[in-house]
Amino acid sequence: MKWDHALLLSGAVIMAVGHCMGLFATPPEAYMGETGRILYLHAPTAWAAMLAYLLAFLAAIGALWTGRLAWDATVESSIELGVLLSVMLLFQGSIWAKPTWGIWWTWDARLTSTAIMLVAFIGVLVLRSVVHQPARRMVVTAVATIASFVNVPVVYFSVKWWSSIHQLPSDTGSVDTIMALPLAVSAFGTAFLTVGFIGSRRRLAWKRLSREDAAPDLPELPPPLDLEVG
C-alpha cells in the first residue's frame, strides 16, 4: 500500500472515531447547545487548511531554492487542497453562524482573513493555469505563493484591529477537557486525510509535469557533409 493511501484510510477511520465521540460521547456545548458540535468538524478543517497552505509555502521555497519540478508538484497539490478546505471552512462557518449569531457572515478577523486567503490562492491557481512554460510556471507560482502566505497573518491582525472598533470579535471560548479529546482525534484524522490527499494529488501532478517536461532521446548526429564528393 502506498503511504498516501495508508494515510487516507487511517485518517478516515480516526476521523470517524473522533466524530462519533463528538456526536455521542460528549455533552452538548454549554452556550450553543447541539450546534456547538460543529466545532469537532470546523476547527480541524481550519487547522488542516493552514497545514495545506504551510506545505505549499515550504514547497514554494524549495522550488525557488532548488529549481526542481518535484517541488512544483507539491505546491500545486497543496494549494488545491488548501483552497478546497477553505471553501468548506467558510460554508461550515456560515452554517454555524446562522443559528448562533443569526447572520451568515460577519466581519470577524478570522472569517475575513480566511476569505481573503481563499481568493488570493485561487488567484495563484489561475495564474498557474495561464503560464505554459514549466520552469517559468514553477517560479511564478512559487513567488505568488510565498507572497500570499506571508500575507495571511498580516491580513489577520490588520482585520482584527480594524473590526475590533466596530464590534468585539466573538470568541468560541476555552475548550473543556471533555471536549478536547474528540477534538484532537478529529483533528489528527483530518490532518492525515489532508496529507494523504495532497500525496495522491501530488503523484498525479508529478506525472503530468514530468510528462510535460520529459526529454525525448537526442537525435542522432547525421554524418557531416562531404564537399569533395558534392
Binding site: I116, M117, V119, A120, G123, V124, V126, L127, A144, A147, S148, N151, V154, V155, S158, V159
Partner: peptide, 10 residues
C-alpha cells in the same frame, strides 16, 4: 488586480 488586491488588503 486578481492577485494584487488580496495582497494589499492591510
Amino acid at each position: 488586480p486578481l492577485l494584487l488586491l488580496p495582497l494589499v488588503v492591510p
